[in-house]
Amino acid sequence: MKRVYVNENRCLGCHLCEYWCAFANSGEDSIVKAFKLNREAMPRINVEDSGEIHFAVQCRHCNDTPCVKACITGALSVDNDGLVSIDTERCVGCYTCVLTCPYGCIVIDEKNGGKTVTKCELCVKNAGNEPWCVKQCINGAIVFEDRTNAERQAVL
């Protein structure tokens, strides 16, 4: 399955991916609306900064999926390809997944007072095709590629 990967040597820490991610998942037809109308614009990707190191972090859709195992209501699930997605109708906001995710990729949805969590679903439920963080990265740092398990291990 194609997944999103980030090359930290190229990531500039501009944080634009966060904004495009939030827009892509906002349901609005423009990024201005997504933020100006203050609807549910929450990014599922976060850029970690430390000095000159910047690294965009979002769900790895990893093989052992500790978040899915930990989910007490079955809101988190993994499909046959390995895509981990969330059914917010079922989420009760217990944050067990937040505790178990080794990458810190489960995002508490502050727009609804933290009642549920949200996460990267590779834009399959919104725009489709290419994830927006990849499409909008200004330095080609975020890529959408099909890599083997060995290649993925090398990155992790």
């Binding site: 820490g13 501009c14 944080h15 634009l16 966060e18 904004y19 990024i31 201005v32 933020f35």
Partner: peptide
Amino acid sequence: TDRCIKCRACERQ
């Protein structure tokens, strides 16, 4: 300012 969403990318870059 009607368009600016205060993402601060301009500031960072």
